[in-house]
Simulated scan of single mutants.
Amino acid sequence: MNAVRQLPTKLVEKVWGRDTLPEPFTAPEGKRIGELWFEPPPEHSDLLVKYLFTSEKLSVQVHPSSANARPGEDGKEECWLVLDAEPGAQLAIGFNEEVDAATIEAAARDGSIEQLLTWHDVAAGDIYYLPAGTVHAIGPGLSLVEVQQNSDTTFRLYDYGRPRELHLERGVEVVQGVPYASEHRSTVTERGQTLIDGSHFRLDRIEGAPDAAIAAAYPGGLLALPLAGEVHAKDGSARAAAGECLYAAALNALDFGAAEVTLLTRSN
């Protein structure tokens, strides 16, 4: 396979998605698109990168860790980079105060769990790292980049009366009933900045070419997601602009001469 190639995309319909997407994306007529996935390459199959577009609240949910996942489940840590936020847009992450499992389950059943959660006001450039076990919900009016372990194990605790399955027993077993740690939240402030260096993946934001410190952190395979400008393969075999994503076997296979803002991510 080529050392650099553009990843195929998949549009995912969601009840909370949008029929009109921000540029450069386009929703097919009559479709409410909530997510755009970049299909992970076999060489880097443990990470999944997405765009999310919301018009309604997503379910209150939680994911297990790799350590406490049961057979047939997969652990999932994730992070969000806010690209755009309408006035008043919020993310629910963690609880207002420490709560026990019985309280969480009762609140999920009667709907009062929304009041137990901390709703964070958000703006473009905000970054949130969500360790496994962190309860969360995404509000309407947001465009996000999500980087996550490639896992579809999600336990829904509450879904606003929508007719979808809940997973209270397992969700309550893995949820951390605590406030969200402030050190997991940050904001883009620098040209070249490490946004996340977690247990399972690393995420950096760069403007132009990466500096020596960031380049040294990418000795092997990685994903490059341009937010503005273009990233090219040095051999001319592939390119990606905003809304697209490249897999590269090595960072030195990429040309950042036409890049403006790019996200780099790899497994840890």
Rank of each mutant, 00 (worst) to 15 (best):
M1F: 02
T9E: 14
V12H: 00
E13L: 05
L21D: 15
P22K: 07
E23I: 00
E23C: 00
A27M: 08
E29G: 00
G30R: 05
I33D: 13
P41T: 00
L48Q: 04
V49P: 00
T54G: 13
E56F: 10
S59M: 04
H63K: 05
S66N: 15
N68G: 02
A69W: 00
R70E: 12
P71H: 10
P71L: 09
G72K: 03
D74H: 09
C79T: 08
W80N: 07
W80Q: 02
V82A: 10
L83N: 04
D84V: 07
D84K: 11
A85L: 02
E86A: 15
P87C: 12
Q90V: 13
G94N: 05
F95Q: 03
E98H: 14
E98R: 14
A102T: 13
T103Q: 12
I104V: 13
E105Y: 04
A106D: 06
G111C: 01
L117Q: 06
T118A: 14
H120P: 08
D121W: 02
A123G: 11
A124T: 01
A124I: 02
A124N: 03
L130G: 04
P131N: 09
G133H: 05
G133V: 04
G139P: 01
G141I: 08
V147M: 10
Q149R: 05
Q149A: 09
T153L: 09
T154D: 04
R156M: 08
R156F: 05
L157G: 11
L157E: 11
E165V: 11
E165H: 10
H167C: 04
L168D: 05
R170P: 01
V174W: 02
Q176M: 08
G177M: 01
V178Q: 14
A181C: 06
S182Y: 00
H184F: 15
R185H: 13
R191M: 11
G198F: 04
S199A: 15
H200K: 08
R202F: 02
R202V: 10
R205P: 09
E207C: 12
P210S: 12
A212N: 00
I214G: 07
A215F: 03
A215Q: 11
Y218R: 01
G221Q: 14
G221F: 07
L222Y: 10
L222C: 01
A224G: 07
A224F: 03
A238L: 09
R239Q: 10
A242W: 04
G243D: 12
L246T: 04
A249Y: 04
A249K: 10
A250Y: 01
G257R: 07
V261D: 15
L263V: 03
